[in-house]
Amino acid sequence: MNYATWIFLGVFLTFAAAWLGLVFFPHEQLSGLRAQKDADSGQVFPPPYSGEALYGRSVYVREGCWYCHTQQVRGGDYNADLARGWGARRSDPRDYVHDAPHVLGSMRTGPDLANIGARQPSDKWHYLHLYDPQLTSKGSVMPPYRFLFELRKIVGQPSPEALELEGAASPAEGYEVVPSREARALVAYLKSLDRSYEFKE
């Protein structure tokens, strides 16, 4: 083959192989991944989302929580993802087999949430924080999600789910603030985010 043929072949390969390398091979290598079933306990890792958590996930996507929160604990030498306690191990491609859209995130205006279910298991905290982040984290820049809550008149007994609001934040006499179905689903999703299980090789 002469000189020119080699150049053409090189051009073809560089160009076509980029497509193969970045789109096709990752797909080949990773789309076959499945959740792992533990033979002894019968548990599946990562556990599939419950119906409610899945609905909560769609709220998470819709409200754009993922523009401020990542869901990936990185490996590598030059970052402190593990040292900050955002996870017990580096995230694995297999952690994401149930996820679409992927919500890996590209910005950490807020902390990583890959394991928020393990770090913060309290419903009450999550509701207060979503209703008004200033109540739990003074000075936060996370937006309040009051539109995910309902202000309603207390009929008979106060609802057990009502937020315990104090001082200026508390609603008028005879009213209570309760999470909407969306807020409850969202919190169920957040609590399901726990990737502290280990995969068997």
Partner: peptide, 11 residues
Amino acid sequence: GIMLLFGASIV
């Protein structure tokens, strides 16, 4: 198909 098409077209 797409890969061949684009690889070939640039060549």
